[in-house]
Each structure stands twice: as structure tokens, then as C-alpha cells.
Simulated scan of single mutants.
Amino acid sequence: MQQEPWDVIIVGGGSAGLSAALMLVRARRRVLVLDGGAPRNGVAAHMHGVLGRDGWSPLELLERGREEVARYGGVVRTAEVAGAEAIADDANGAPGFAVTLESGERLTARRLLVATGLRDELPDLPGLVEHWGTGAVVCPYCDGWEVRDLRIGVLATGPRSLHQVQLLRQWSPSVTFFTNEAELADDDVAGLLARGISVEPRAWASVTADEAGRLSGIRLADDSTTDLDAIFLGPRPVPNDALLTGLGATTAPAFGDGDWVGVDPTGRTSVPGLWAAGNVVNPGASVPIAAGAGNFAGAAINADLIEEEIRVSLAG
């Protein structure tokens, strides 16, 4: 690997990271994308609501993205990143970063973009993980059409579950809200019943499957079973932000799910030269939203590099 610093290292090769890389390589920047090879939506066979790519495999989209980045001279490597540190150019005070891989290899860049996404923490429900991304999903806009008019169950996993279950009623008249013995406010119950949504208060025990291995319903604690064609839930989103916080990026409570790294509209963090885009800073970013954030971040990073090059030239 070359010793001269890269213009930009991007950690994370999902839609945000690759979109940023594409902007930067087309601006004739030398870009390295480091990707662990385990995209969050890799469990899904199709993605929806992506203009011009509706129904595509998310893995196919990423493969096309890697090819496009490489076409303009960008480099995409499968590698795990162990850590990163800020390094300053003593000659001009410009920011820079050193990234260390799990192999021990050390790489340097003038700017760093982190697009490492998030991980979904599922509720402790036996059988759920086996159907995650297929029969059990999170987004009504991504998967509601495919189960329209079928039997849908929604698990009460947090405050946003009430909104989620009301959304799902848009796609089917057969929707059941499984509260797992959680108490609901009278007004919330009235709103559910007004829309024809069934409320199941008993504790859940497991997700069931048919002989072909497809999700078939939920078994409750009293051993009764409710037949279903799909389950929607809201897993707890946990950002993969260790690189960002390790570099000192400022965090704050956000999205109702703990602390998240704050960024400006371009993805710039509180650390000079450090950007972030996609699910690592926005749990609600779908594929097109994450790609748009990466696009914006790529352009902003290029502009930031230009400003630095002007300062260095004037100082010289």
C-alpha cells in the first residue's frame, strides 16, 4: 500500500460510504474505502422505495457501487479497522488521520469519513432472529406492500411502536398489536380499536415457523398461537460509532435511543477533518437517505480540501 497519504479514507462501504467515495473520485481525489463486508441490510433479499432500483438486492446495489468507484480510480478493500487517531501536519497545521487495520497495517489520510452504520438489538424472543430481514422486519414503507391485506403482527418494543402499528393498518385490515403485558394508555387503546387494530396483551413466548421454515405466527406464554404472515417491530438501534467517539466527536441524546454523534447538514463532526454519514449518525436513514448524506458529505469534504490547499499555497 502506498505511503503517501490518501486524500480521504472512508470506513464503511454501504450506500453512504460508496456514494461519498463516488463524489470524491469523480473530483479526482485519491480515495480508499475500507469495508468489513457485513452490511446491515444484507439479510434482506430486496430493497424498496429506492427510485430506479426498487426491488433490487441491496448486495447488488453495493456491488455496482464498488464497480463505479473503481472505474474512477478509487480503491475499495475488505478490511476490519481496529482504530484511528488524529495526526496534524506540523508544517501547515492541517488535520489528518491515521487508521490502523486489524492486521496491524497503518494508513494515513487528509480527511476521514466514517459510515459504519448501526446494529439492531432485537428483543429477547426465541425464533425471532431466524426470521429477521425476511418474515420479521422493521419498515412499513420498505416491506408493507409485500404483505398488503395479509395477517400482520406488530411487537410493542418501545414508544414508537404505537406509530408503527397505526402505519401498518394502511396496508392491511388484519393487524394485531402484541403488547407483551405492557400497559397502554386508554386513549392509545381507543385509537387502536377505532382503526380496527386488535390488541393482544398476553406475554409472547416465541416466533413460530411452518414446515418450510417460513414465519407462521407467535406463540404466547399460555401456549396459544396467533397465526401471522409477517411481524414488524422496532429493534433498538445502536450506532457503530467507536471510531468517532474514540476520536473525540461530540455526542448528545438524540432519536430517543441514547447518545448519538452530532453532525452538521454536510456530515461534519466536532472534530476537524472528520465526517460521518448514514445510519451511524441517523438511525432513520433508508438506502436513498444514506446515499444522499454520503453524496453531500463527499462534496463537502472536497470543498474542505480545496480550502486547505488555498491556505497552504498562500502561506507558502
Rank of each mutant, 00 (worst) to 15 (best):
T78E: 14
T78Y: 13
T78D: 12
A79E: 07
E80G: 09
E80L: 12
E80V: 09
V81S: 00
V81N: 00
V81A: 01
V81H: 00
A82K: 12
G83V: 02
G83P: 00
G83D: 11
A84I: 03
A84W: 07
E85Y: 12
A86C: 11
A86G: 13
I87S: 11
A88Q: 13
D89L: 06
D90A: 15
D90Y: 04
N92S: 13
N92W: 14
N92K: 04
N92L: 12
N92M: 08
G93F: 10
A94F: 09
A94G: 08
P95E: 05
P95A: 13
P95I: 15
G96S: 08
G96T: 04
G96R: 05
G96P: 00
F97P: 02
F97M: 10
A98S: 13
A98C: 13
V99A: 08
T100P: 00
T100S: 13
T100R: 15
T100W: 05
T100E: 15
L101S: 03
E102T: 15
E102L: 13
S103C: 09
S103G: 07
S103W: 05
S103V: 07
G104T: 01
E105C: 05
E105G: 01
R106Y: 02
R106D: 06
R106V: 15
R106E: 11
R106M: 06
L107K: 11
T108R: 15
T108I: 07
T108A: 14
T108M: 11
A109H: 09
R111V: 06
L112A: 14
L112Q: 08
L113H: 02
L113Y: 04
V114M: 01
V114A: 03
V114P: 00
V114H: 01
V114C: 06
A115R: 06
T116M: 09
T116A: 10
T116D: 08
T116Q: 09
G117I: 03
G117P: 01
G117A: 05
L118M: 04
R119F: 02
R119C: 03
D120R: 01
D120C: 02
D120P: 10
D120N: 01
